[in-house]
Simulated assay, not measured.
Amino acid sequence: MQLRTRVDDALRQDADIKDLIWGVPELISYASPVMTLNPGDIITTGTPAGIGQVADGNVVSVDIDRIGVLTVNVSTVGAVACSKGGLTRTQTT
């Protein structure tokens, strides 16, 4: 399935989901220390390259074939630092 990400309507990513850097178990492990995950929650992710930085006030839309589109407004309200180091974290296989 194709995943397309747009920031303020500018296409930033267009890739197959098989190209995800982290698998689903790794994404859940990454997110769970900073928030409570409940059934039905959505964890958005990206592809190996393209998204770049986003800032307060941006609108990000993620579209996956046969699934749909999720659009969110970026906000720094209530933001917390990631305890896992974000970009500095190395991938596990």
Rank of each mutant, 00 (worst) to 15 (best):
T45K: 01
A49C: 08
T44A: 05
V59G: 00
L37S: 06
G52I: 02
V59Q: 09
V60F: 02
I43K: 06
D41W: 09
V54W: 04
G50S: 03
S61N: 07
G50T: 08
V54K: 06
A49K: 09
N38F: 06
P39F: 04
V69W: 06
G46M: 00
D56F: 11
G46D: 02
G46C: 02
L37Y: 08
Q53T: 08
I67L: 13
G57N: 11
I42Y: 06
D63Q: 15
G68C: 01
I67R: 13
S61L: 11
V54P: 05
I67K: 10
G68Q: 00
T44H: 03
I64D: 09
V72N: 14
V72M: 10
G68M: 00
D56R: 13
G68E: 00
I67A: 02
P48R: 13
R66K: 14
V69R: 15
V60L: 13
T71L: 00
N58W: 09
I43L: 13
P39D: 12
A49G: 05
N58I: 15
V54H: 05
L37M: 10
I43T: 05
T71M: 00
I43C: 04
S61W: 10
G46R: 01
G50N: 02
G50R: 01
G40I: 10
G40Y: 08
V60E: 03
N58F: 09
G68I: 02
Q53M: 13
I64C: 11
S61Y: 07
L37V: 05
V60C: 02
T47R: 09
D65E: 15
I42D: 02
T44C: 12
V69Y: 04
T45R: 03
D56A: 11
G40H: 07
D41M: 05
T44G: 04
I42E: 03
D63A: 15
G57M: 12
G52L: 03
N58K: 08
T45S: 11
G40M: 07
A49R: 10
P48E: 10
T44N: 04
L37E: 09
I43H: 06
V72G: 08
S61Q: 12
I51E: 06
L37C: 07
D63P: 00
G52S: 04
D41A: 05
I42L: 09
G46Y: 00
V59R: 14
G40S: 09
V59H: 04
V60M: 09
V69P: 00
I67T: 08
D41P: 00
D65V: 15
G57Y: 11
V72D: 09
D56L: 11
G46W: 00
I67E: 01
I67V: 15
T45M: 14
Q53G: 07
T47M: 05
T44D: 02
